[in-house]
Design a protein around this nucleic acid. Structure first.
Lengths: 260, 260
DNA sequence: TTCTGTGAAATGGTTCACAGCA
DNA sequence: TGCTGTGAACCATTTCACAGAA
């Protein structure tokens, strides 16, 4: 399919670059910390340091949102918190469901970061009948038979998948059919979704493998380095990838085996 | 770009693009699944579909590793599994420590994906004395007083931080001082590390906020889509984003607020 | 003066399209 | 003939450097 999509630049809209969107939560967190300390204003330099980026990038990012700063002074913390929150859609409340209440699902349910910013765990869902009714993080687990009803009753549009890999696609399909249009996937599988549905994945094993790559390189490098500092340090902390994607995926299970 | 002749062949294979490195684990997973099904060869088209990318990207990615394919045929699955594993440094065993054995740390310790691919949980560390000695995922938790000794005794170079945000930087500092050079950070904090230390972060709350941004945009968009027709949805495939939105005048203020 | 906002250049990454080998 | 490997075009993001507001 898709033998070359019709490339249409379309409207010159106020499209905020994806890379910028990915950093807004970082700025927001730093700003919230400042706000709690009652700091009234910050410079791009200070805020950038707190968020772990450089100041040019931060200013460029903010320029996509508008002109919220004051030259010679900096940014008003409270005002910026509000503007970024609004831009990210956090001024409204997002009910989310977590599917798969194993170790990870329970950890997610207990994670304070969810509730702290516009997100509310509307329901916990698991396929195990023995789990039904048991409270996790104060919320009773519901059986997956009722998934569709739960989604609709709560007006849920964001779903978190924390099931084993083998169950993820089926859960995903049901979530989407029930109206969910954004999915955060923790299962190590490529999910296939229809157009208009957004998927982001978090994959522990992939992150570790990327670290291993760099680690191995370091080990090979330390042969000709004197004491005056490593030649090519890869210190990156703000950078990020995580490209949501979805395509075909005949893949179903990933029992993973060690290649020897 | 007209003047762009800064093309630096530089150090040949030393320069695998970061974006490519980030996709290698994806290919590896797809290949492993094929290998288990005893599939002998794959085309770039098939493998790309299984990994959720397009074939041109995959071929380009592989071209950075070398010429491992056969024209007119495809790639030998086993051979490619080995080559990618080697490139990622997975032919050796990486002992990792997990610091902070709360809900999340326990989930990580139990996560099969760790052990399955060259990684071995060498130790679990927590600051709570009450945890010491208690087995999690079959591994006894050790007290953080012994952190340095544990790192050194096990030759650990990769550390996972799953502590509360407030403790993360201190833990990070101790890990680095003890010799850890790669860190996977689950705490919602920006970590500061010296040159030569690699940090990757996984932040649930940030991922959700990015989803919320797109979700909000979808909500504002739905006007003529009623479920039929290939209307210009917010479909994303890799990094394609071009959703129209309200524009703003030059140097003007931002559009109105949308209270909900 | 200080610090934001932003064109323009540089860099990095993706897609195209096709030469060339099995 | 079929599919890989890859220069070159294209697009996105980052960085530079400085004009201009407070």
């Amino acid at each position: 399919m898709a033998t070359g999509r019709t490339h249409r630049p379309a409207t010159r809209s106020r499209g905020i670059p994806e890379a910028t969107v990915a950093r807004l939560p970082l700025y927001l967190r730093a700003l919230t910390a400042l706000s709690e300390r009652s700091v009234p204003t910050v410079s791009s330099e200070e805020l950038a340091a707190a968020a772990g980026v450089n100041s040019a990038k931060l200013r460029k990012d903010f320029s996509y949102l508008g002109s919220y700063g004051t030259r010679g002074v900096g940014y008003d913390v409270e005002y910026l918190v509000y503007q970024i929150s609004r831009e990210l859609g956090l001024t409204q409340d997002w009910p989310v469901v977590i599917v798969g209440i194993g170790n990870l699902g329970a950890a997610l349910a207990n994670y304070g970061g969810f509730a702290s910013r516009g997100f509310r765990v509307a329901a916990l869902i698991d396929a195990d009948p023995a789990m039904a009714g048991k409270p996790v993080a104060g919320i009773p687990v519901q059986h997956s038979d009722d998934l569709e009803k739960i989604i609709q009753d709560n007006g849920v549009s964001i779903g978190v998948i924390a099931t084993p890999a083998g169950a993820a696609q089926a859960v995903c399909d049901r979530l989407v059919a029930a109206g969910v249009t954004s999915i955060l996937n923790f299962a190590p599988t490529v999910l296939t979704v229809p157009d208009g549905v957004d998927v982001r994945k978090v994959d522990l094993s992939i992150e570790l493998q990327i670290l291993a790559f760099h680690e191995q390189r370091k080990a090979g490098e330390e042969a000709h380095t004197d004491g005056t500092g490593p030649a090519a340090a890869v210190t990156r902390e703000g950078a990020d990838d995580s490209a949501p994607s979805a395509d075909k995926g005949p893949d179903g299970d990933v029992p993973a085996v060690m290649p020897a």
